[in-house]
Design a protein around this nucleic acid. Sequence first.
DNA 1: CTGAAAGCGCTTACAG
DNA 2: CTGAAAGCGCTTACAG
Lengths: 346, 346
Amino acid sequence: MAVTMQDVARRAGVSAKTVSNVVNGYPYIRPETRDRVLAAIADLGYRMNTSARSLRTGRSGLIALAVPELSVPYFAELASQVITAAEERGLTVIIEQHGGRRDLELDVLTGERRTLTDGLIYSPLALGPGDEALLDVPYPLVLLGERIFHPGIDHVTMQNTAAARLATEHLLAQGRRRVVALGPNPEQDVGSAPLRFRGYREALDAAGIAPDPSLEVPTNRAWTHATGARTIGRLVDDGVRFDAVVGFNDSLALGAMHELQVRGFRVPDDVAVVGFDAIDEGRYSNPTLTTIDPGRAEIPREAVRMIDERKRGVAGEPTRIAPEFRLVPGGSTGADERVDTAVATA
Amino acid sequence: MAVTMQDVARRAGVSAKTVSNVVNGYPYIRPETRDRVLAAIADLGYRMNTSARSLRTGRSGLIALAVPELSVPYFAELASQVITAAEERGLTVIIEQHGGRRDLELDVLTGERRTLTDGLIYSPLALGPGDEALLDVPYPLVLLGERIFHPGIDHVTMQNTAAARLATEHLLAQGRRRVVALGPNPEQDVGSAPLRFRGYREALDAAGIAPDPSLEVPTNRAWTHATGARTIGRLVDDGVRFDAVVGFNDSLALGAMHELQVRGFRVPDDVAVVGFDAIDEGRYSNPTLTTIDPGRAEIPREAVRMIDERKRGVAGEPTRIAPEFRLVPGGSTGADERVDTAVATA
DNA sequence: CTGAAAGCGCTTACAG
DNA sequence: CTGAAAGCGCTTACAG
């Protein structure tokens, strides 16, 4: 069978405990003892059995990240950063996709995998007010987003309203007056959509512009390129006139920008577009996308830190974090200096 | 402490083995016995301890997917599909990022995580010829890509040369004559780059066009938007004239397309662009991207199947799979009918 | 179909 | 600093 610590111990002439100490990096081992153990490990090709350690200690070193869908760029970039941050703390990441389906979202909280992982970083889409009791789970949980809150657990959120207001103000400051809000959903009373919508309305109010219901364009919850393209296309088909779009995320904004250009609109000349999330894609779209960075770097880092501290028992009271945000200027609002200075050279 | 099978067994008045049988879905259990067990599980809130099962059986139900970087759309979409395919087989996926760094790529093969997972789906970037011995690992391994081969293990590859030839022929068929190959790398003698380059050259040969070294533009191995944009920009700066670009992947192609448009070139009128991979982004770029689908759906599905069958011991001889590919027409070569018929309606 | 017992490979008090 | 022994919670022959 496999080489065990016992085998290594015998070979090195020490006890299994000493091997364990060496493998786990405990100090206070005589250098010569350590060397003998390491030599025995090398000789025998010993590999620690992680399941046995997990069984004994009750900890696996695994954490889960549950997101709607990994192929959505925002979540792919989040996952990439979560994995990197976890690595730095010696943790391994399992990724689960729930697709925003309620049954799968419930399963994330209680499924068999929760006995395997030491903690969960969770970005739900279907759960919401009324489901708080479900969050009373016997493991470290960090919630991403603002669909649901529970005083007993850690949250990492965004400054949705203030950031969406800033995005809208950026458009109004350029003289745009018919600004489409792309993404509100009357059926959703919680989550990013209503919060960003509030920011949009606040900006209009502050500028003394009356809201126009025909410019408040709901979408389904799948904030993808396809949804953005289809929705803005329908708006154009309906004969609605507008000079700017606030996409409630970058994919919606990029999908809308694409569709507008296909239909012959110039961006930003005819229609300026702003997104939300600051995904990589918007840095290479044509034109580049003006967007909101809601704290890209901080969100994954803080979420992993919270999980790790909670599971090591060094965390204090549950907290709620909402990082600083900023506007990232791009060509889609004429704010990218590259576009202004670029000249065709061939 | 935690509720164990013993506790459930006592409560239900059966042995632990019966509880195990029920939990693991073995047939031939008397319905009334099963019901008693299920009731006891519900009463006590029993959860199977996965680590204990793994220790006993030697299998964890975990597989790893190791890729350069999850934030690269191609790998994000691959990972999403691998997770879905694994789910269908009751497997859970750990994702590891090696960033193409050789030391990390070696660690993927031998690190502690390999004692935790039942198998590995591996897409290396730095490993290559000469490293074959490293692939002689004591666990199921499926290799993605064509950097390195080992007769003893399963491979899922692409028909790189034939597909790149098709992409180039598509451009030549439109009368393009100065076609840039964006992505070859003289320092790389294996992997996608030289194979796709060969397909490019084959297409030129077949059309009786002499290769022009100034159109064969190397890039670094990071086939990102940024690399594509920077490289094509330099080519323009150098005064090289061209009427088409074969990007060796979609990100290079999209980055190049972006940069060309920023510099005032019209795509496809002045320069036609083709990519490779068929990532989602190219469906919503402006214009949409003509690209090669190298078997998007089949690659992840087959990789997971191979790992699963190998670990269950039902696989036969190691095989090498290269799915069917196809050209996906888009606006970047004037092949997208939407662009032709679309009319600005406002 | 079911029970009793051993053992997977670790870590952890308990002693020294 | 190190040894001997127990036990984490399962599954699996072995019996019945």
